[in-house]
Computed example of a mutant assay.
Amino acid sequence: MISQALQMAADTHNRTSRRPQGRLIGYARVSTDEQATQAQEMELRSAGCETIVQEHGSGASRARPALSRLVQDIGAGDTLVVVRLDRLARSVSHLLDVIEDLTAKGANFRSLRDPIDTSTPQGMFSLQVLGAVAQLERALISERTKAGIAAAKAKGRLPGNPGIRERRPEMLSKMKLAQQAAYGARIQATASQWLPTVKRMRPDHTWDDIARVLKQRGFDWTPERLRRAVKWMVSEGMADASLLRKSPPRPPEHRLMTLVAGIHSSNPELTLREIGTQLERLHERTPRGGTKWAPSSVKNLIDRAKRTGLLMESQSAG
């Protein structure tokens, strides 16, 4: 994944170096509510940042709702700016994950006090060094872990945390918190790829319908796992609570109309025939009960979606 992130960053540098620079967006984080971000804000504004996003959160946690929203909304050509790397990420791997998300959006990253600026060749070199350090760090941790387990077994001791084996309440509580933090990090890492589809289709569609649409795009969600992920996003203030409302009963044709609108909105480049192929893969029957979808049937549903406001008139499929 690191090599992919570095390649994406290099490709983005080649593209963005030929176009006007976008906005400079600052990100200021402090560990507790008692601390203030004014010092970071002053430095970011001096660097040219007109917009600054503030976050209060522990450096030991990847759960950064404000940062996640910023990365989701950032535009191509924009640059995310921080005072120091430790204000953004808790580890080298976390930093590379964030940069990978930024480069996927065509955006850059800059740290004012570190030699990292993905819009420059020097900054890209520093990023490659960080990637090599991260790989070495993981390899060393893996070797130490294996050596520790082997030594423990040689002495007749069981590997792992004794507090967890003995089911001590305080250790189980810490383990639960760690699992929740890891779950949140996984959800945030992919939210920009599936959450827009959920927002377009909820609450008109059931979780089952949306999970089936997302499966066509490579997400192996079950309806319950998808609902749980959205519930977590809502609890963290990263999604609107209306997404969790119960889906109202809908006539079959209305359900098909919103399903087609959801597929089309997720990928406006799909042709009418390609949308029909997706519906056949989802085993959806036509309004007349058939199994084969004609482009005209898809177009009728898209036209209805436009009349009811589910799609903008400017949106169309060929």
Score class of each variant (00 low, 15 high):
69 R>E: 14
110 R>S: 10
113 R>Y: 05
55 E>S: 07
72 Q>W: 09
136 L>D: 09
142 S>H: 08
118 T>N: 04
98 V>Q: 07
148 G>V: 06
98 V>A: 06
59 G>I: 05
61 S>Q: 03
127 L>Y: 09
77 G>E: 10
94 H>V: 07
72 Q>R: 15
140 L>M: 12
114 D>F: 06
113 R>N: 12
82 V>T: 07
84 R>P: 03
118 T>D: 06
79 T>S: 11
83 V>N: 08
78 D>A: 11
142 S>F: 01
62 R>C: 10
89 A>P: 02
128 Q>I: 04
139 A>R: 03
82 V>Q: 08
66 A>N: 14
81 V>H: 03
86 D>Q: 08
56 H>S: 11
129 V>K: 03
147 A>L: 12
74 I>Y: 03
139 A>V: 00
69 R>C: 04
84 R>E: 15
90 R>G: 15
75 G>Y: 00
96 L>Q: 05
75 G>K: 14
136 L>N: 02
123 G>Q: 02
108 N>Q: 15
63 A>H: 05
110 R>V: 12
140 L>Q: 13
129 V>D: 08
137 E>A: 13
128 Q>R: 15
108 N>V: 00
132 A>G: 12
71 V>C: 07
109 F>T: 11
95 L>P: 09
76 A>F: 02
65 P>H: 04
87 R>G: 07
140 L>P: 01
133 V>C: 09
135 Q>P: 02
55 E>G: 02
100 E>T: 11
89 A>W: 03
77 G>D: 05
64 R>L: 06
93 S>P: 00
94 H>A: 12
145 T>F: 10
78 D>L: 06
139 A>T: 01
68 S>N: 09
133 V>K: 01
86 D>H: 03
64 R>N: 03
55 E>M: 01
111 S>K: 01
127 L>H: 08
59 G>F: 02
79 T>D: 02
134 A>C: 10
127 L>A: 11
89 A>K: 01
140 L>R: 13
93 S>K: 11
70 L>S: 10
55 E>V: 04
116 I>E: 01
63 A>L: 12
90 R>C: 11
124 M>G: 08
144 R>P: 05
127 L>M: 12
93 S>C: 00
64 R>H: 07
116 I>K: 04
62 R>P: 00
106 G>M: 09
146 K>W: 04
107 A>D: 11
95 L>F: 15
63 A>M: 06
107 A>N: 08
109 F>S: 09
88 L>Q: 13
82 V>I: 06
147 A>I: 02
92 V>I: 15
127 L>V: 07
135 Q>I: 10
145 T>P: 09
88 L>K: 05
104 A>L: 13
121 P>E: 10
112 L>Y: 06
147 A>R: 13
125 F>K: 08
